[in-house]
Nucleic acid binder design. Structure first.
Lengths: 340, 340
DNA sequence: AGCGTAGCTTGAAACGATTCACGATCTTCG
DNA sequence: CGAAGATCGTGAATCGTTTCAAGCTACGCT
């Protein structure tokens, strides 16, 4: 007895399969007595509708917005690293938007691997998810158009190409703001700390910062490249930093985790932050405010970013053919605390 | 034209549908020339197999371990909070084990809400996932048996009941170890900091610690309950702590995030850690080692925990009827750094 | 030539739900 | 009393895939 099907429920309740289906999908079409009988049968048999069959029959989800109940759909949220608070915040924003509209979010992580990324997309495609929100690691146009022909909406986060919807933060501006702040508090020898693989947005931050700095007439910033963007690597960066000559008096870290590790180690080595070296992070994760030296940082509107991305995805789904790809760009914001 | 189906591919390649299916599933049965022709047709048409139909036909996945290619399946990993490094580490451990066996992980978050938790389970059930690994918020036996009859394997993480597989850490022991350490370094007035909603495991840690302390003849520890288990709340706890009289000289925090926030705030208020107040955390998250005051803590083998859970789930799936529920219990470990 | 075999291919029968054109009853009202 | 609606139910057709018994060739062997 492989599975309880609608047919057995029908037999048990003494009705036809069509009626059971109606109880499931349009209960108002069924007389109360019958409905109860069917429900009881469902209960007793522990019946669960086979979503595969349902979807097979239904085909590409109807244009939504029909009368009555919304078609609850699943969207995939693919991020590079579920351990990174930045990524999880973005994803939570997306999930919130999705939930608010009665949809669901499935999280997948690509772990910075193009292969895992591709596999995740495949999985979503096989499951016939409604759409994907993705912080891409290495997405080709081909992958995307594949998804598209499978009828899924695709939204890029933190990256963009003309023929897909995307939501991103203006990282160049973020870099500029950070550099301008460092310059503004009188720092002249600025270093940049980042990690490999260096995500596109970090490159942009770096470019923005670099330009601002050289345009202001200061020396091109030294760049310290670590193995990852974690606090541990930030610690390591502290030592490298002190070996630089001339020793920098301002540091711009590609993310807060690096900054926190860096500051902690610097403090332990007797260097005062911000007096000796000012440090500015990027992201404004929760920990930034309650760090030993509260971190000055660039806040990304991450929840909003995820939220916007989800809105785009849902819109794309609703609009069908007439859809015009949109690119949302949010602006980051300087949060001044104590580290710079 | 709703979707490219196997039939159109067949027509285009001039073969029967059965052959196309074979190319997809058992390529070795098909002559090379035909195979190439079919593959070309697939390519040209941008065909993607409709997973719903496939699954509908296949029915409950065969007992795996068949000849040839493994049936790649998706497992759901439901955690309470994807923002919590503890949870994500466990989930990553699970994902690693799953991937190692050629399966996939879908992450869902319940956000501490029983409703979302239930919804997540429903979703997984509808998608006919192979199994669920869950850190439960509020799971009734009924929910579980529902999942079970739907043919999914269920593994509880960090909680247990006799009739389900589970993997957990011995939290009582963890509490005992922490308390014993605090006692061992001469602390006498110990406080416990936790947050609501207080997960079962935290209660166990507290119990273990309490017992050890009272059995050693010290006063029952004061308990500070915060609104959450975050660094921000740890900060708040610092102030409450100082108002206690007698002022504690040792604190056991329910997790590292609380401990880090607490220590940072204490330091800012001029209290020395560990000299004035020793603080011990729980979890050993990455940040613990690189915190301003490197944190002494109880390490949970989180990756292993997730890994074991995944192994259990996969085993359950493979064993079918003959399955015996197993409960894996891992032992936590004291990591001495500087905060206590 | 006759026969067995191996290697490919075929095509119809599932899988389990949804849909929809039709009946079957029951009301209501002229 | 009879006809026109309402209101409910029915059950066959259908979605796209996999499965599998059966058919077809070509080949080797006696």
């Amino acid at each position: 007895m492989p599975q309880t099907s609608i047919r057995e429920v029908a037999k048990r309740a003494g009705v036809s399969v069509g009626t059971v289906s109606n109880v499931l999908n349009r209960p108002d079409l069924v007389a109360e007595a019958t409905r109860d009988r069917v429900r009881a049968a469902i209960e007793e048999l522990g019946f669960v509708r086979n979503e595969s069959a349902r979807r097979l029959r239904r085909g590409p989800e109807r244009t939504a917005g029909e009368f009555g109940d919304q078609p609850r759909r699943a969207f995939g949220v693919v991020v590079e690293d579920l351990t990174n608070p930045y990524a999880t915040d973005v994803a939570r924003g997306a999930e919130a938007a999705l939930n608010a509209s009665g949809h669901d979010a499935l999280w997948l992580s690509s772990d910075y691997s193009a292969a895992k990324e591709r596999r995740s997309l495949e999985l979503l495609e096989e499951q016939r998810a409604a759409g994907v929100l993705i912080i891409p690691v290495d997405l080709s146009a081909r992958d995307i158009s594949g998804l598209r022909t499978a009828g899924m909406s695709v939204v890029l986060i933190d990256r963009h190409t003309p023929d897909v919807c995307s939501a991103q933060v203006d990282h160049v501006a973020g870099g500029e703001i950070a550099a301008a702040h460092l310059l503004g508090i009188g720092r002249e020898r600025i270093a940049f700390v980042t990690g490999v693989p260096e995500p596109e947005p970090c490159v942009e931050r770096r470019d923005g910062a670099s330009r601002t700095i050289t345009e202001a007439g200061s020396a091109k910033p030294a760049t310290l490249i670590q193995d990852a963007m974690s606090p541990t690597e930030g610690q390591a960066a502290a030592h490298q930093l002190l070996e630089l000559s001339p020793r920098p008096d301002g540091v711009f870290c590609a993310n807060d985790l690096l900054a926190i590790g860096l500051i902690n180690e610097l403090t332990r080595l007797g260097i005062r932050v911000p007096e000796d070296i000012a440090v500015i992070g990027y992201d404004d994760i929760e920990l930034a405010a309650s760090a030993a030296v509260p971190l000055t940082t660039i806040r990304q509107p991450r929840r909003e970013l995820g939220w916007e991305a989800a809105e785009l995805a849902m819109a794309e789904l609703g609009e069908g053919k007439s859809h015009q790809h949109r690119q949302v760009v949010l602006r980051p914001e300087l949060v001044i605390r104590e580290s710079a």
